[in-house]
Design a protein around this nucleic acid. Sequence first.
DNA 1: GTTGAGGGTGAATCCAAGG
DNA 2: CCCTTGGATTCACCCTCAA
Lengths: 378, 378
Amino acid sequence: MAIEGALPMKEGNARFSQVEFVNRVFLGDALEVMRRIPGGSVDMIFADPPYNLMLQDPLYRPNQERFEGVSEEWDRFASFGEYDAFTESWLRECRRLLKEDGTIWAIGTYHNIFRVGKIMQDLGFWILNDVVWIKANPTPNFRGTRFNNAHETLIWAARDRESRYTFNYRTMKAYNDDLQMRSDWHIPVCQGKERVRIGGRKAHPTQKPEALLYRVITSCTKPGDIILDPFAGTGTTLAVAKRLGRRYIGIEKNEAYLRVCEERLRRTVPYPEDILPNRLEERPRRVPFGELIERGYILPGEFIYSPDRTYRATVMADATVTCGGLTGSIHRVSAQLLGKDANNGWHFWFVEREGTMVSIDELRQRAIRDGGEPPQQA
Amino acid sequence: MAIEGALPMKEGNARFSQVEFVNRVFLGDALEVMRRIPGGSVDMIFADPPYNLMLQDPLYRPNQERFEGVSEEWDRFASFGEYDAFTESWLRECRRLLKEDGTIWAIGTYHNIFRVGKIMQDLGFWILNDVVWIKANPTPNFRGTRFNNAHETLIWAARDRESRYTFNYRTMKAYNDDLQMRSDWHIPVCQGKERVRIGGRKAHPTQKPEALLYRVITSCTKPGDIILDPFAGTGTTLAVAKRLGRRYIGIEKNEAYLRVCEERLRRTVPYPEDILPNRLEERPRRVPFGELIERGYILPGEFIYSPDRTYRATVMADATVTCGGLTGSIHRVSAQLLGKDANNGWHFWFVEREGTMVSIDELRQRAIRDGGEPPQQA
DNA sequence: GTTGAGGGTGAATCCAAGG
DNA sequence: CCCTTGGATTCACCCTCAA
């Protein structure tokens, strides 16, 4: 088992430390290796488990050539029950490994995805989306017996219902020509130069396209995040993770696949940090109204006005404002003046500066631009 | 319960006869009504089950008092369990009602479809396809927290693995500009005139577009087939079934929906029988090679040739052909000559007629056109 | 260099009838 | 029931090679 780069297993039940398990590919069974990794240490998991295809007879193309599908032993299970038990075991371990706010992706087809999704729900994962990968160039239905099976399904779920997961909404929107990224992704299957071949034959029967992983990883992780792929195969997830400046953990049971995987990772060069696609998600630090007073942008005792100067309120030292008999936050008082349940005070109130009205929201923008330090005291 | 057109329930456990249950809409619980229908009497089922039973609205949660003090996990388990029990019960009854070769469709979203699909597999349904209905105009994700949920999933399954189900392959291919119909269907949501409204408000929250049902029904039923919709809602399935010359059975628990449904059916006019789309599936009578000899299109002792005249075989009186040392059917001999396991001899062999080469498949077409009678004997 | 023809290929639960 | 046999059945994309 002298696999270069693969870490030998620890004695007994000892678990790896982070420096040991990050940016590595392990040779071994997903379940057994996962058990050696401490809980709560992974930001995102991408899992492409066996589909349990249950193929019977060989399939021939219309020209009588034999279609080379998935004949591998690893896709064969004795029954639904056995597949379910396998699925529950690795999903349960995945859940342990995820950080509180971590998310998981699982991909499959109608052969297995319903069972996977059902078990994910039962284990407490909170499904955020199902995404359909629509193939531009699927394998046709050679016998004309069904609809052409032209898609696969991905399930994206958070560890818990309460997880405050990462979703790079603005990035994905920009990615999609400023329209919300939808749940249907049109991506070609993995072909051509990208397909890893050994001696002219495909190295792995189900290699996923890098474009798919690019979108997955970009959508829900940040640079530096730790991504686990328990069924690494030829390492598509890991290579894209590395390219995008994420850290990775791979597990692969098949030694031939693992070798492909490591060679591929050696050739993969990360993008420079400054072009990693996360800028759109860098939200400015929140500056509450009280901070404007602390930092001297507004002075206690000053007046703030409604847009048409109909209302005038006094700013108190504790960051409440008073107007007539009303006292409360800038939001609450403005809401009451307007007879509404809620209102955004930042856009309602103005102060006078050098003879003109200035929105307090504008002052807030200035405070953010000025940085964390309060302005010079007079 | 004076619902016009709705049939009163029978006393006890008596079951309806076909004339009683066909082309009707029943007011009542899906399970209870299905139990009154004899088994093996339905060709196709389209089911759009409720999926908002759990974890959504406090009204539908399990009784708080009963589960007082239990953890979130138990609460979740209880809810999923309840939904699963409900799902299994109606699916089991559907399976009883289906003919041996019948098929079923179920539609849902990630909230419920994985559970539905898993239970279908467990009950013995054999999934043929999952189809994704991709919405041209989905509701946006207002909060920007996930991908825009722009699709729903349909599962199409046969009653058994061995079912010889109906799939109108050629019809669907023509429907799709002579390309195989794929598993991704791009159809707008139900809007505008098609959307049933009562007093300006939509009558039903999840009315499906007729285009979706049109494609479903066209793809896997024949005119006259009996189609069941156990959760009929506003009756989209039934109306399209009627329009396409299929028979229908509807079940709807909500009296307001049922009224909409029946009014809609009254307004629905079936297409004339002669334009119903099933012609492409009418396969011509099979004419075996021997019949061409019996009927004098080819004479025993004649030669037949491969396309490039490389090979020449002799037609024997028993409809075998011989070429060199090979003897067998037109198919077997052509396969052996080509070094393949199998080959279609109809497209391989030619005869000479008036100085030109004529495909024996062409002779077969003539024989079919000439009708069942052998040509006049000389 | 460009274009076009031709061949290869992809997670596939892929037949029906008759003896 | 199983086994044999007839004969129906494919789309988009990528690569190579020739013109």
